[in-house]
Amino acid sequence: MSITILNFLIGLGIAFFGFVLQTSIAGLNRKIVGRLQKRVGPRWYQEFLDIFKLLSKRATSHGWIFDFGVIMALGGIIATAMFMPLTSTFNAFGTYDNFFIFVYLLAVGMLGMAMSASGSGNPWASIGVMRALTTMLAYEVPFMIIILTIIKIAGSSLTGIQLYQQAAGNNWFLIALPLGGIVGFISLMGMLGKKPFETYIAPAEIASGPMVEYGGKQLGMLFIMHEITVFIEVSLFVHLFLGGATNIFIFILKYFLVYTLANLISNVNGRFKIDQVVTFFYKWPLILAIVQAFIAIYLGWVI
């Protein structure tokens, strides 16, 4: 197929949709957590107010790498979100929805943020970046084993994976590969930086890690980037394990349930130390992932 300007516009629309969706759902989740703690909680659009307030403030710069890294992070993440299929029939670039596109493009945004944070020169930021990369190294290994199992079964196109799960006689991979579903969800918690694996943010310990020197406009852009990153990661989980979606409402429902569950688990947990994060991921999720891969590939028991 030929790529026209329309494809790019649809892609940008998807990125914008992801931002609005995730920001609203994050606000709703703050309300839900408030109720969990017997509070009233903020308004559901509080996250929008926070982001626009940050964009309205004045900001200091710490040199051009600091500024450029923020733009690179935001641009890289928007570029990644453009490829995300929303349902099994709707995406921006047709057949270009391979899983590995997300793996590669997501790294651009992450590295932009790491570069920018290190460019601020603050030691807390360096520690935060180091912890973020260590956490990434920890959850990627079990997650990739499960993903490669899925790719062995259903191919690597996200639309293909969704259609495989929706076909008659097949099940969602959460049910077909139950151990893999558990590993995928734990890895998702690590990706989102939710509580047991929140080590690289840790506001009380390393003063919010990579974000320590950001204020005003740069922090606002990083918030937008963070919302779109969460959109990409949760959507990946929905498409890979929950059978994707046949229409946009089912997608929003599944998205909301997955994100809320992760958030609820996050709010009743403490925080791991960084060595505990690595030991944890290399122990149980890795064992479960290898067992699941063995069962699915060599024994062929895909329920």
Partner: peptide
């Protein structure tokens, strides 16, 4: 509450 002076109002 916020963690650092840069982020706070």
């Amino acid at each position: 509450p916020m963690a650092t002076p840069r982020q706070a109002d």
